[in-house]
Amino acid sequence: MSAPPLLKVENLSLRFTGKTGSLHALSDVSFHVEKGEILSFVGESGCGKSVTAMSILRLLPRSGVSYPTGRILFDGADLRTASERQMQRIRGGRIGMIFQDPMTSFTPVHTVGMQIAETVAQHRGVSHGQALKRARQMLDLVRIPDAARRLGAYPHELSGGMRQRVMIAMALACDPELLIADEPTTALDVTVQAEILALIDDLRRELGMSVILITHDLGVVAQVADRVMVMYAGRIVEEGCIEDVLARPSHGYTAGLLTALPLPGPHNHRTRLAEIPGAVPRLDREIDACVYAERCAFAEARCRSGLPSLAPAGASHRAACVRADAVAAAMAGNDIVRAWA
């Protein structure tokens, strides 16, 4: 028997309800995160990656949001029904989170040292001096040179990459078991992106924590993730360990992402994955067909007549695609697939 997963999300559905109707932002999302692994969520804008992450920490507004089904088990306890006080202890304590835009994610009028230290003080109940000492250690940990002086810097005095390092330091200051990183490198330029990713990868090894890494970019996934979860229109369409998914992509959407991905090389900057033709379906009603069928290069009549469920596509690999085998066969010639096969 292997150890139970650190985080297990079961059948999570989420609806935004407003005056103009309701939006099925998540439908029947189930996944788990093992201790010490990096699980990556990929998918294009609006597919529900952030909403899934925010649901774990319960950061979404209470009004206008409902969860028709689902449990979020963190170390065995359901976060959906936990008290606000329990959640407050978990946020920043056992689960750290970092966000996309490190400029706007800090209070502009306090020093970064104070902002790290207050997190420590909040969860550890230590004195201000001890909290500041911890903040210094954390800046060292995320390899910020001259840490003692940086403690007194205001966010606007640091570069984007530096700010994201501080963000990571802040999220990790209380030794969380899980780090949720919501597009931590999207706002940064390419060289800095690679540094930050490498840092996250190093730290999870050093600290033995689990990571949920949210990204648009399959290139990022290929670089650091252990497992990947491909989302589309509020659903998981394919999920599995990185080797299996990249060596044998088994959903039309994953295939689309891989085809749209520029090859690694000196002149190929990674671009956002918006090149797949067609538009994401409207989410204002229940969809009882494959959500991707309208844009899929592999779609057949049966794709539009029933909802495919996630079925095994390999040893630790599932895909919600009735054409899984055809997709895998067609993708066999793709450069990335060949590299992983």
Partner: peptide
């Protein structure tokens, strides 16, 4: 509604501290 308020919530800070100090 600025992003930093979300960060503060995600750090586990209480409402009063978020409002007053930040």
């Amino acid at each position: 509604h600025e992003n930093f308020v979300r960060t503060l919530k995600a750090k586990g800070m209480g409402t009063r501290r978020i409002l007053v100090t930040h």
